[in-house]
């Protein structure tokens, strides 16, 4: 890699460093905005799938099967084009206001639905990992249903679910790259712009891959630290 290539990464009007950094910001913003949807949605889906009531269980199971099975890219297209068309059609009945689902919002909804579906599996596994005796003990102490959930089940659930959820965060971070196909100016899209202007595809896509890898590594280190922290008191198990 010679100097002239590296100088393409300079910041300022001549280099592409600042553009790529702005792309990293969008990539992280999208992942961070989507993660809570996956987390909360996954927990609610898991509750629904464990429910006694078929009216909750069946739709939740269908939802998870669909969004776990579909390619993320097609989910993204369906949300991006479909939701825009649907909202416009609905609103055109009442007013002339134009509504467009931005690529960021479409990415959040599509990737959120996918993450929530996978997270519900993680939570189901974690529920199964909590020993029955814990619930029985809590009942024996006379704790209410709510207190049982909050004080006994949730803390253990989070510890058991953490490794799986950490994995999903890494998957989500990588999946954000797909949203570049519907014109979100994330890291990958901006890399493409740089490639178009400089005709140096190998260099720029390689740099993009290294940046994604760095984000994955930093995430892994943080997740490893969190796991160690939440497993205190469980040494040797």
């Amino acid at each position: 890699m010679d100097d002239s290539l590296l100088s393409l990464l300079r910041f300022g009007p001549q280099g592409w460093g600042d553009e790529l950094l702005a792309g990293v910001r969008i990539t992280l913003l999208l992942a961070l905005a989507t993660a809570p949807i996956g987390l909360v949605g996954g927990f609610l889906l898991a509750l629904a799938r464990r429910s006694q009531s078929a009216r909750l269980r069946v739709p939740a199971t269908i939802f998870t099967t669909v969004f776990k099975g579909l390619p993320e890219l097609i989910t993204l297209f369906i949300v991006y084009y479909g939701l825009s068309m649907l909202l416009s059609a609905l609103l055109s009945l009442v007013s002339d206001v134009y509504v467009e689902v931005s690529s960021f919002l479409a990415g959040m909804i599509a990737l959120g639905a996918v993450s929530a579906s996978f997270a519900s599996e993680v939570f189901l596994g974690a529920f199964a990992g909590i020993p029955k005796g814990q619930i029985e003990g809590a009942e024996a102490l006379g704790l209410s249903r709510y207190a049982r959930m909050r004080k006994v089940v949730l803390p253990q659930l989070l510890r058991l679910a953490l490794p799986g959820l950490g994995n999903l965060w890494l998957v989500l971070l990588k999946d954000t790259a797909l949203v570049s196909v519907i014109a979100l100016p994330d890291l990958l899209r901006r890399t493409f712009v740089a490639v178009g202007a400089t005709k140096e595809p190998f260099f720029f896509f390689f740099v993009a891959i290294l940046i994604y890898f760095a984000m994955s590594l930093v995430s892994s280190v943080i997740l490893g630290f969190l796991e160690a922290r939440y497993s205190r008191g469980y040494a040797g198990r």
Binding site: K174, T176, F205, I209
Partner: peptide
């Protein structure tokens, strides 16, 4: 494993 498939394909 740590990078997006679509970026690998572009590379």
């Amino acid at each position: 494993r740590g990078t997006p498939l679509i970026a690998q394909l572009f590379l």
